[in-house]
Each structure stands twice: as structure tokens, then as C-alpha cells.
Amino acid sequence: MGDGLFGNPITNSTLEGMPDYEDNKNIDRKDRARVALNMRSSEEKSVRAVQYLQTMKDQCDGELGGTLCLLYNATGDPIRYVTHYDWGNGHPGPTPYPMEIANGQWAAFLHVPLSTNKPYATGAIVYRGKDPRGVDCDWMVSWDNPTDKINNTPKAYSEVREKNHFFNSDFWRIIYNKMQSSGICYDGDKDVDNSYGCSLSVSIGSNRFPILVAVFTLQGV
């Protein structure tokens, strides 16, 4: 397991060892997603992910602050890093973005401002996964974490769109504007434009090092 990943992958073999599935010969993506969602706090994996971020935070400039990002994969399949986007003023913290997150795993990383001259840490990350039919689609999480919390509040936003959607640079301006009106929580189930059957919800705290939590899953699990 690489740095920043927490929890054992939840696969067909995992479900086959559970009483509810031991006689099920047709375990599918939604089954794996459902079990992963129900087990998001098992093995103390979420606790260990937060502890990891707290350790990474100590390596950052406390005056600048940063965003402690937690992504949970409950889509039924692995999701793989595609790209990221920064609105000119942020970068990953002490560790890189996780390249692959297995079903049932938490991924943890920091995103921090460049300097006191550019105090906003506003960024996004995109992973590729599958919808309930097995069609590839791209899952995007974005966040805006201003250093000045008196005059500005953190914000978070997410989308799931067709494969390669986020390589069109024109969309990032639109995403930024949507994020500015989304607030500290965004319910992915309410996005009628999301790829078929996909749900990606995100929330962010409001302190100097707020925790951002995004849950990648399927509708109806």
C-alpha cells in the first residue's frame, strides 16, 4: 500500500467471505460499492488517514494553512488519477497525489498555498472510474480554501462527467464559478448532469487547516 492510502481493498473475495454474499454467484459492482460504503469507518482506516494528515500538516507553514484532503472510494472498482488543476496558487503538500485508490480505501493528501503573496489554495483533482454499467467516466473534486477566513469562506464542489471531459480548459472557469456558489457542502446526488448512476459528494471545514471529505460512490447503494 502506497503512502496516503488506508484500508484493505474491498473486492469480490472480500464479499465472498461475508455471510450475506457467500452463496451469491453474481456479485457485481454495486455490491462491492455498497459494502465499501458501509465499511468506510472499519479497520480504523478513516482515523489513520486523519492521523497521517495531521503528521503531514506539521511539515507545512502554519501561517499559510492548507487543505487536508480525504477521498473515499466506494465505486466498486479502483479509481485512477487523471489530472489536477490549480487556479494559479496552490500545489500538493509534502506527499504527491495518490495515483490509484482501491475500492474501500481512503486516500489522503495536502494542498497548500504557494506563498504569502498567493495565499489562496484553490485546486481540483480528477480520477477515472466506472459508472454502474462499467463505462469509464471522470470524477472531479474541487476546493477553495482562502487563508483569510474573516472575509472569505472555504468552498467545495464536485462533478462526474464523461471520460476526458476535464481536459477541456474552458470548463475550469465554469467549475470555479459553480464552486463559488456551492458553499461548504455539495451533494452529488442533486447534479442531474453527473454521469449515469454516479454520486460524488464533498464537504470542507472552515479552520486554517480544514478537512475536505469527498465520497465517490454509485447511486442507490
Rank of each mutant, 00 (worst) to 15 (best):
T116Q: 07
G183H: 04
A121W: 03
G90T: 13
S182K: 00
N194K: 01
N151Y: 13
P210H: 09
N168C: 09
D189V: 00
W143T: 00
V192H: 10
V202Y: 00
V213E: 03
G129L: 04
A102F: 08
N89H: 13
M179T: 08
V160W: 01
R133Y: 14
Y186I: 00
F166K: 02
N194Q: 05
I174W: 02
S181N: 11
S115D: 14
P154V: 06
C137H: 08
P113F: 13
I125M: 04
D86E: 15
H91W: 10
D189T: 00
F166I: 06
D189G: 00
N151G: 15
C137Y: 05
A102C: 11
S199A: 13
D193T: 15
G104H: 08
L110W: 05
S169A: 15
P92S: 07
N152W: 13
Y196M: 06
W172K: 04
G104T: 12
N168F: 08
Y176I: 08
I175E: 02
D148K: 10
S181W: 05
D138V: 00
T116G: 13
V215W: 00
F166G: 04
L114H: 13
G183Q: 04
A124G: 15
A214S: 05
A121G: 11
S142T: 06
W87T: 12
T153W: 09
N207A: 11
R128T: 14
P94T: 14
K163D: 11
S206Q: 10
A108R: 04
V215R: 01
D189N: 01
A121L: 03
D193W: 05
G183C: 06
C198Q: 06
T153A: 13
V215T: 13
G188N: 03
I150Y: 10
S182T: 01
N117H: 12
E162F: 06
F109V: 13
Y176A: 12
A108E: 08
Q105L: 06
D138R: 00
A121Q: 08
G197A: 12
G205P: 04
N152P: 02
G205H: 07
S203I: 05
I184G: 02
M99S: 14
I184C: 04
N177V: 06
M179R: 02
P98F: 04
S195A: 15
G90W: 06
F216G: 04
S199G: 05
A121F: 03
G188K: 01
C185R: 05
D187M: 02
T95R: 04
G123D: 08
W172H: 10
M179G: 03
F216P: 01
K163N: 12
N168Q: 14
N207C: 11
Y196C: 03
P132D: 14
G129N: 09
S169F: 11
P119K: 09
E159Q: 09
